[in-house]
Design a protein around this nucleic acid. Sequence first.
DNA 1: CATGAATGAGAGTTCATTCAT
DNA 2: AATGAATGAACTCTCATTCAT
Lengths: 198, 198, 198, 198
Amino acid sequence: MRRKTGDKERRIAEAAVKVFARDGFHGAKITHIAKEAGVATGSVYLYFHNKESILHHLFDRLWQELHTAFAEVYRADLSARAKVEEIIDRLLDQFEKNPSLALLFVNEQHLLLRDGTGEFMQYYVDFLQLGERIVREGMRSGVFHPDTDARMFTNLVFGGVRQLLHQWARAPRQFPLQSVRSEIKRIILHGLLHRPSA
Amino acid sequence: MRRKTGDKERRIAEAAVKVFARDGFHGAKITHIAKEAGVATGSVYLYFHNKESILHHLFDRLWQELHTAFAEVYRADLSARAKVEEIIDRLLDQFEKNPSLALLFVNEQHLLLRDGTGEFMQYYVDFLQLGERIVREGMRSGVFHPDTDARMFTNLVFGGVRQLLHQWARAPRQFPLQSVRSEIKRIILHGLLHRPSA
Amino acid sequence: MRRKTGDKERRIAEAAVKVFARDGFHGAKITHIAKEAGVATGSVYLYFHNKESILHHLFDRLWQELHTAFAEVYRADLSARAKVEEIIDRLLDQFEKNPSLALLFVNEQHLLLRDGTGEFMQYYVDFLQLGERIVREGMRSGVFHPDTDARMFTNLVFGGVRQLLHQWARAPRQFPLQSVRSEIKRIILHGLLHRPSA
Amino acid sequence: MRRKTGDKERRIAEAAVKVFARDGFHGAKITHIAKEAGVATGSVYLYFHNKESILHHLFDRLWQELHTAFAEVYRADLSARAKVEEIIDRLLDQFEKNPSLALLFVNEQHLLLRDGTGEFMQYYVDFLQLGERIVREGMRSGVFHPDTDARMFTNLVFGGVRQLLHQWARAPRQFPLQSVRSEIKRIILHGLLHRPSA
DNA sequence: CATGAATGAGAGTTCATTCAT
DNA sequence: AATGAATGAACTCTCATTCAT
């Protein structure tokens, strides 16, 4: 028999990231994914139930990894501020090596949010709650401004990071990830206003 | 209710906003848009060249309006800080009456960004530059922190607003636009950190 | 607009009879049916939900017509024997002009019997019951043999007619419908045995 | 239970009868047949050239057995009437132990009749001719009615048996094979009419 | 011989777009 | 200008068959 090589699923998944990122989920043709993966069309269906399940798989995996990273940060012995900074870093780390994944993340997640199902959904919700919890932690300890709305803050930052990730993926030179990291932190921590007295 | 007068184009455009928002651009069927607009399928093609051009039209119009609003703010006799606040308000104003438009804005714009063409593209780029200019203006006058990266800041805020707009459109109760406005401003102006001395 | 000509559905239905009869349901391609009907592929789906529903439609219509004919016979003022003969005639009448319909009837009905749904199913069951009732009627009046099992008889005759219909459709010369009619009647009424005394 | 010895071909054939009967030839998947036979998918192709040839094989074997049985009857020292009765019995005997085989016989034979090839075809034609010969034999000896059309009669009976076999396979309780046997014989021999004088 | 993963041609169906009325 | 029936290209998915192991 022809033994399952074991990397075929990964090859298909990686090809899908690339093609979904390039053509968008609806513009992506299974045939192209198969070709990109060096596999026959039908083989895609040996590993994935259908086109949409490939997308689900990718987001499930992505968010599972993010979740793991975030949980680690959350449990770490760090100040709330350090946790906020670390989470931003971990989020960006996830995409640093793979701009295609960033484009997928930024452009296609709404397809899955629409129906609200999928393993990844739980991780996504957890992530937002975790962000809120850290913010409240910092508020209790007096480091963060007491009037902060934790949920708004978390979403604001998440959306900002997402947008910058998008810009980076489209033009890495103009938005070097190193600057992205530091600028995000500076702005969300200190705000835009200049306070010479501080 | 308006009857079949000369406003068919607008009726189709409005129907498209609704259907695109509900079903997504690719899930939306021209037939449904026509029905929603109270118009025959073929009539859609009397006013729009094809499906994609409807989307282009919607984004062109949206960004043109945003552009007008932003330009007004930019030229106004306001402090840089007030301009930043005002721009956020104008951005949210645009969607306040129309959650469907917000969903369209948030979920489907990437389709048009992909190829980088379209009238709206110029307005979008202009908007980001205008944000940068205002930030630099504030930096020069000493109100904004001198180390701010204007482009990063603008994108961060734009992404954050986008995300909160999304949340609002999906669950208006949990993200009342009024709170969204004030929280965004507070956070981006003062940052997350608490400075009792300030 | 392009007015619905009204005969397109019939053209498709008739083409389907022909193609199903020739190639079998599974061997039949929608494309071929469309071409045979002088219609575009997609047009088939304006009139029928899917391939299987064409088959359902054909059998529904066929059995509805048979049902009407049978009910007429049943209600007529005829002896039980005359009714039996008449029903056989009506059954064959239905196919006399359309050998393809006969092949469809003979070869593909089992596909629909499998799941037991469809409008036609009721007519089919009714037909068999009606046959039984006529036989019992004749038994009561003493014309038919008292030991006859009405259900078995009905099925036997139905099966026999079906088989001869099949042979006729495949080789009309060898099984002229006129002989088929008279032979069936002779055999089922008098049986195979020769009784000189009778 | 037999283990993987040299009987794979038979195991596949038997599995095929079951699966073809249950799902129909076109609904049957080679994979399912293989699984049912306890064999790998590819192994099916070691014993059969392709899917259709499995069907051919089954019908060839079936008709060969029927042929043997019929030939035996034909050569036996029996009256024409007894031969007719015996042939009906032998036909039903063949399926008595295997309702799946009956369903296969009844529902899928038309697939092979279509092209008219296959070993079984000869046996099938022979069977019909043999039926005719017996009928003529009985006519010559004066036992059967002289006006009988032997070919029509044979087909009528064959079709009737087929139909009753079908009913039995679908609902054995309602059509017990024992009653089926006796009723068929009674009806075809004596006919439906009641003749008190006889 | 046996295996079952891999193949890829092919079919049903959808739907943006066209066009006769 | 307006209509909506008609079109047909194109895509997803299936599954009989093959073949490396």
